[in-house]
Design a protein around this nucleic acid. Structure first.
Lengths: 291, 291
DNA sequence: CAAATCACGCAACATATGTTGCGCACCTGT
DNA sequence: ACAGGTGCGCAACATATGTTGCGTGATTTG
């Protein structure tokens, strides 16, 4: 998105009609494609009529869509001049201010994420993905801090397969579903110190019944790791009062992608279609809600 | 000029007829414009007939000029990211292997996390934290991909305060709790494109009733952002089939920490004690569970 | 030196592009 | 309740695009 276009859009966006906002949002999200795709194609991807694109450009003061494209093309031409300012330019902030602590946390997270990209992790991820791909059913378990991670993995998996089952504790049941699991099934368990007792017990139980275990946890010595299971080890150190779960979250996300990619491509393209359909259905709000 | 195009051209250039060499020379000199200008225009600048361009592309093994342009467009699309990638110690893996995709995802996440540490983000975080700290009640909303983020924030907040309420849809209720909210309360909403309709509607509703809004979303143009609310913008681009939620997760985590740190230190130390106690109770499993 | 081949300008073609006019549906204000 | 206005889907428009067939002149080949 061109600097000037971004400014124009920011000031006028709220006053724009709904469909134009929809179109503008797409452009803002795909600035490169403005110059590289035909207008009609962009309109199709944004879920908008071709005419709307022209009208949007005009509403923003451009002569037409071609003028908008020209601007984006010019920006694209000199793109590589924007060099990576990678040299760590940590801002000089004190750790006792709010912004300081925030910066500290973001910085720590950055280091942790960087540290994830090891051969060992990649190998473990491949192994874990294989395990989930071949499983008859995938049980996903994680409570407390780890619940968000487990939930996310289950959600992602459930978009591409119906073999995933989340073992949450709603209503006091949840773990009971594990009773139907067997050696063809996999238990994905996420947990960090202090390990929740229920999770540890369920994992040991599953292990005893020869259910395969994929553990996402914080230490090689974690009680969740099974002898012949797969272990994904992530750091959890944090400047906060809680353990950092972002690395675990990222690994779960990556794992889901690996599993999805093994499904026949049909599934993925169908999903993409659904996504676009959802976008078209959900994004557009034609009028303010009455209250 | 694409890597592959350069190679092809190098081997075949000498055997090409004069006019085609002329055309090829121009392309080699203006690789960017291949995707940004029309073929006829390029022909004009190269001093060549339009037909020659098509024939050149075909002589080099392409289907037509469109194929050549597509290749250059693809190169242009990822140009800046490729630059950033060079300063990087990426292991030599193919993107079509599992480990390759995993590496790609981790690498993208790393870049995204790095990009979060801006002055703007830090300021917004401080603002958002202030908002949540002063609120009478904090309603937390996020569905689908964003649910894990919302859940995590609510969980973290609920460890330090009882003012947080999660608006999940279990049992079909959930959003109803918003009816008790007023201007002293804050709605924290997380959502990325395609925005879930229910979330957008609830947010607009809350906005109309002067409830303060803190939005964690993927674009400055997101429908979740309120005029006088706080906006936390995170990237969601991903090599996967799902949007990357790791940046959002990290920001939510950081926000929780900022809110927690504002509470009296007593709360935090008490919490630490509880944590240690839980750890002692839960970690150690003296004997395998009977099954 | 004739025949075959090739380069390439020209012009026509089908296509798809960006744009605009029309009309219906819906809101807004009097 | 009615007039005026607006959003926007639809369809047609003129245009410009990438491509291909044809013909002429040059170059090579036997």
């Amino acid at each position: 998105m061109t600097e000037s276009f971004a400014r124009i859009l920011a000031t006028r966006f709220d006053g724009l009609p709904a469909r134009m906002q929809q179109a503008a949002r797409w452009i803002a999200a795909h600035p490169r494609d403005v110059a590289l795709l035909s207008m009609r194609e962009q309109a199709r991807m944004a879920g908008v009529q071709p005419a709307t694109m022209t009208r949007l450009a005009q509403a923003l003061g451009y002569d037409g869509f071609e003028a908008l494209r020209a601007e984006h093309a010019a920006a694209l031409r000199q793109a590589p001049s924007r060099l990576a300012r990678q040299a760590d330019d940590r801002l000089p902030l004190h750790a006792d201010s709010a912004a300081g602590q925030a910066q500290e946390m973001l910085s720590v997270a950055q280091d942790q994420i960087t540290g994830l990209r090891t051969d060992e992790m990649l190998a473990a991820l491949s192994l874990a993905a294989d395990c989930l791909i071949k499983a008859r059913r995938i049980y996903v378990l994680g409570l407390r801090s780890s619940h968000a991670v487990a939930w996310h993995l289950h959600y992602a998996l459930s978009l591409v397969t119906d073999r995933a089952h989340l073992l949450d504790g709603v209503g006091g049941t949840g773990l009971d579903a594990l009773w139907h699991a067997g050696p063809e099934d996999v238990l994905f368990v996420c947990g960090v110190a202090p390990y929740t007792r229920a999770v540890v017990e369920a994992t040991l139980q599953a292990q005893a019944r020869n259910i395969q275990i994929v553990a996402l946890t914080d230490s090689r010595l974690s009680p969740l790791i099974a002898a012949q299971g797969v272990a994904l080890i992530v750091p959890t150190g944090s400047a906060s009062f809680l353990h950092a779960m972002t690395p675990a979250f990222l690994i779960a996300d990556t794992l889901a992608a690996l599993v999805a990619r093994a499904d026949d491509p049909g599934t993925l393209s169908r999903l993409e279609g659904l996504d676009r359909q959802l976008a078209a259905l959900n994004t557009y709000i034609s009028h303010p809600i009455e209250v």
